[in-house]
Design a protein around this nucleic acid. Structure first.
Lengths: 211, 211
DNA sequence: ATAAAAAATAAACACTGTTTAGTTTATTTC
DNA sequence: GAAATAAACTAAACAGTGTTTATTTTTTAT
């Protein structure tokens, strides 16, 4: 059935077109400032057409959530080339910050907004993407332990702790809260430097966790 | 002028009534889900009346932001009774988590939302509340350094790092992201336990930073 | 060419924050 | 006490939001 196939392909095309339009508008204007009508206008369809391809706005957000996670995981996969586990761990931290800074809206989608997560909870799928990203961190920690780091510490708990620190650094930086603390403005540091230095401080702490 | 005074007092009363109605609705329904109309209905005035007392919705949010910070600082002031600085530091961490868990909407107001911060930036005031909270942490760190902890580490950078970890723990927990990681559900841990244990893991790291 | 099916839309609904013009209430002046 | 002034309040509207329904246009199959 060549005809049905072509139609199906066209359907998928339009579905993807909606997604790309939404993505570009989200990163351009932010989430709250992007309306269904604006997405419709960008792809030159009527607003109601969007609803033929996506149940509601949350479904669009959820689709971008999945894409975003794939992007993050692919960012981390490059680090497999770093053979020494602790060096890899450090590189992962830097990569995480870099990802958050370069893709603030994607980051918001992945780790701050609650709606896309609710959608995951409703589906029976086990949030593979998130688990995979977390497992990358956990495995690296376990490898570090084989080298004498983090002895007698639970790898899962340490993974949560490290993730929390990274997440805290990224969110406090990009939300502007870090920048509004007086002592931060008083020194000559800019925000990126400050974040990098705080990360190095944390790395220094991790480094002491050997033997 | 007794009359003018009484009127002024009434004005302040209504202004405060609006604030309390907003606060209760915010904590009850969340920020996004509370409208000016809902606030107006709660105090039994017309929506337009709100605008006679507050410039816009952001000004209400900002007023609650200030209140929230005072609440947080008062939470911390109790800890002055803890004489040993490192014990005090540990207690501060627990108090911080407790505050975030018990007042999730206030926490969101203080450390996640960007709008109230913008308002602070527009005013010339130097965000005293935030600076004071941060200074409490910094001073405790400096006292710890006098006891042999965190030698040769910059107290401001360490303060940022610790704050980031606490903020990360609190936000990942209450946003639900922590709970959606497979390994977290696999173990018997509940979210509060998990957060507490992750905090203890972090404390264990800090504890090693002596001499 | 005509009937059936699919795709797209115009228009409405129930909301939102906010503004404007008008009404009601309270105070002051005569 | 009655009239003029000032303050407080509100009804109604505006422009926007996500979403739904009924209708029209376009495509496909007979």
């Amino acid at each position: 059935m060549g005809v049905a196939e072509r139609k199906e392909r066209h359907r998928e095309d339009l579905k993807n077109e909606i997604l790309q339009a939404a993505k570009s508008l989200f990163t351009e204007k932010g989430f709250e400032a992007t309306s269904i009508r604006a997405i419709a206008e960008k792809i030159e369809y009527s607003p109601a057409t969007i609803y033929l391809y996506y149940k509601d706005k949350n479904e669009i957000v959820h689709a971008l959530h999945r894409d975003g996670f794939r992007l993050l995981v692919s960012h981390f996969e490059v680090l497999n080339t770093v053979s020494h586990p602790f060096e890899r761990l450090k590189a992962m931290g830097r990569a995480y910050i870099q990802f958050a800074v370069q893709n603030p809206d994607v980051y918001k989608l992945l780790f701050i907004m609650e709606e896309p997560l609710k959608h995951v909870a409703n589906c029976f799928e086990e949030w593979d993407e998130g688990d995979r990203a977390f497992d990358i961190l956990r495995k690296t920690i376990i490898e570090c332990q084989a080298e004498g780091y983090f002895k007698k510490m639970d790898n899962t708990l340490l993974a949560f702790t490290i993730w929390s620190t990274m997440h805290g650094l990224c969110t406090l930086k990009s939300s502007g809260h870090l920048g509004h603390v007086g002592v931060a403005r008083a020194n000559q540091w800019n925000l990126d430097e400050l974040t990098a230095m705080a990360y190095e401080t944390f790395v220094a702490m991790l480094e002491r966790m050997k033997t």
